[in-house]
């Protein structure tokens, strides 16, 4: 698994967010994207996920597969994609069912294991509205564990999490890297796992 982006540029609302951006990630590598707010970190992640059109440049994945790039990616944005009046389990079970791919067909056990992994099994049958911000964030991240997708695109995954919870997330990210996955993470904090760095902001104002 290798992902390479070259001469990327994305435009939104007539404004060039960033231009002529490139990076290459081999299996088992992580890329940390940092830069001031509004430098386009989220935009880059969404562009990689295929949620936003590219103004220029291209993103290639080797080995080439007929599956859309979006179906190889997990994207965790600021919003946790949780419906307040559904329970944590119902939310995650739906997302797992939605994001199923030919390579990974999680069952109910995988959903329960993911909740267990994120320390949410005690609150699994409570409506998401009752969860704290930290629990909601962990519930949002639980889909990373429930459905196996190689490319992880994480936007500020550690916000609203206390130290033990952050440790769990870092642990999961480390596990994904050692398993040969790829992570692009937008964050201000430095990460204990080895990452290449990509600074946005200066490039955007060329």
């Amino acid at each position: 698994m290798q992902i390479e982006a070259s001469a990327l540029s994305v435009e939104r609302g007539g404004r060039i967010i960033f231009a002529d951006l490139g990076f290459r990630l081999e299996a088992g590598e992580a890329l940390r994207v940092n830069g001031p707010n509004g430098a386009g970190k989220s935009t880059l992640l969404k562009a990689i996920a295929g949620l936003l059109p590219l103004a220029a440049g291209k993103i290639e994945i080797a080995p080439a597969s007929e599956v859309r790039r979006a179906e190889l990616c997990h994207y965790v944005g600021h919003a946790d994609a949780l419906k307040p009046n559904l329970t944590a389990f119902e939310n995650l079970a739906f997302l797992a069912a939605l994001l199923v791919t030919s390579a990974a067909r999680p069952g109910v056990a995988a959903v329960e294991a993911a909740l267990e992994r994120l320390g949410l099994s005690a609150v699994a049958d409570l409506p998401a509205a009752y969860l704290s911000a930290g629990q909601k964030r962990r519930a949002g991240l639980a889909r990373l564990v429930a459905v196996d997708r190689p490319i992880w695109l994480l936007d500020e995954p550690l916000t609203a999490l206390d130290a033990p919870a952050q440790a769990v997330i870092l642990e999961i990210m480390a596990a994904h890297i050692t398993a040969g996955g790829v992570i692009v993470v937008a964050t201000h904090t430095d990460l204990p796992i080895g990452t290449a760095d990509l600074a946005l902001g200066r490039a955007a104002h060329r």
Binding site: A49, G50, A70, G77, D80
Partner: peptide, 9 residues
């Protein structure tokens, strides 16, 4: 709540 992005993926 971000579900739409996941529909697209």
């Amino acid at each position: 709540d971000g579900s739409l992005d996941l529909f697209l993926m």
